[in-house]
């Protein structure tokens, strides 16, 4: 079995929006624009960025919940984007998703037991008794009592609902879980509970995670490698400690500098940067980051920098580094 579980190459997902009245103009939003990365077995890979950078769309495109327009996605060597409906159904058992908003992620009209049993029924995975046992086992594994099976989502707190979401993602014993901001909606003390749970499950089930988040601290804790996205593109990727402790791309530096740190002696020096995230409808020419970049050069305004390998594990897409090399 190869080390590499998921390989994403040049993935592109576009949306079209009609804007304007009475003569609407069709805009194309390049939500995900040629991103490439891979995830090894048993690894957690972080995808960080601010809202609208395309990180969630990337996750959904890999699952084909949103249809991508170009590029390649391989799961254990199988071409995901070439699959037909039936193959896709099978594939999705190996790849599951956890959502950010635990309220929206569970059908309010179904009991927890039904929510967890239905997918097993649909895929005919076991007799009634077996399914029931499996649901109880899963509930136990995510730290919920068996009585939870008879209750409805509204009877649980956010953290408990998220545990149900995690149990659902585990139903098919997947190899990869795409976790889309799984702890962002939770209270601080609950966040660490859920993170610890996910970490424990990762070990017992040998899971890989694509961990999508805006919170650098959480990604640093949970992931071993990370990619930083800005307006649909990956600007930098590499081992999480290197990327966050010695960031190369100016945007990563800004993101790091702007993240609040719970230490008054450090955080008073928090970086301030001017400028807004530009609209993904109309990204700046050249490097998307150049209008906000403190190190902007002439070339940045016209040409998007290609990804440069800094060492065997790190890449960065920035002209600052291409010049040094060239």
């Amino acid at each position: 079995m190869s080390k590499e579980l998921l390989k994403v190459e040049g993935l592109q997902t576009f949306f079209t929006i009609k804007k304007g009245f009475p003569n609407p103009v069709t805009h194309t939003v390049r939500a995900v624009d040629e991103i490439s990365f891979h995830i090894n077995r048993g690894e957690s890979f972080g995808l960080v960025g601010e809202s609208g950078c395309g990180k969630s769309t990337a996750g959904r495109s890999i699952l084909r919940l949103v249809e991508p327009h170009g590029g390649q996605v391989h799961l254990s060597g199988q071409d995901v984007l070439a699959m037909d409906k039936d193959q896709l159904r099978e594939m999705r058992r190996k790849m599951q998703i956890i959502f950010q908003d635990p309220y929206s992620a569970l059908n309010p009209r179904q009991t927890i037991g039904k929510i967890l049993a239905e997918p097993l029924h649909v895929h005919r995975l076991g007799t009634k008794g077996e399914i029931r046992d499996r649901v109880f086992a899963l509930l136990k594994e995510v730290g919920l009592p068996p009585e939870a099976a008879n209750k409805y989502p509204h009877e649980f707190s956010g953290g408990q609902k998220q545990r149900v979401g995690i149990a659902r993602a585990l139903l098919f014993e997947p190899e990869l879980i795409i976790a889309d901001e799984p702890v962002s909606a939770l209270d601080v003390s609950i966040q660490s509970q859920v993170l610890a749970l996910m970490q424990g499950l990762q070990e017992t089930h040998n899971l890989s995670f694509l961990f999508i988040s805006h919170d650098l601290a959480v990604v640093r804790y949970f992931c071993s490698r990370v990619a930083v996205m800005y307006l649909g593109k990956i600007v930098e990727q590499g081992p999480v400690k290197q990327v966050f402790d010695e960031p190369l791309h100016p945007y990563t530096k800004v993101l790091r500098g702007a993240s609040p740190i719970p230490d008054p002696t450090l955080s008073k020096k928090m970086l301030r940067m001017e400028g807004e995230v530009p609209s993904p409808l109309d990204p700046p020419t050249g490097c998307h980051f150049h209008p906000r970049c403190p190190d902007v050069m002439e070339v940045c305004k016209n040409q998007y920098p290609s990804a440069i390998s800094v060492d065997s594990e790190r890449t960065v897409a920035c002209h600052l580094y291409s010049q040094k090399q060239g």
Partner: peptide
């Protein structure tokens, strides 16, 4: 547009279901 519908699709549920 709620996530539980998306979750259903991710679980391989048919449109009818």
């Amino acid at each position: 547009n709620r996530d539980f519908v998306e979750a259903g699709r991710a679980m391989g549920f048919s449109d009818l279901r």
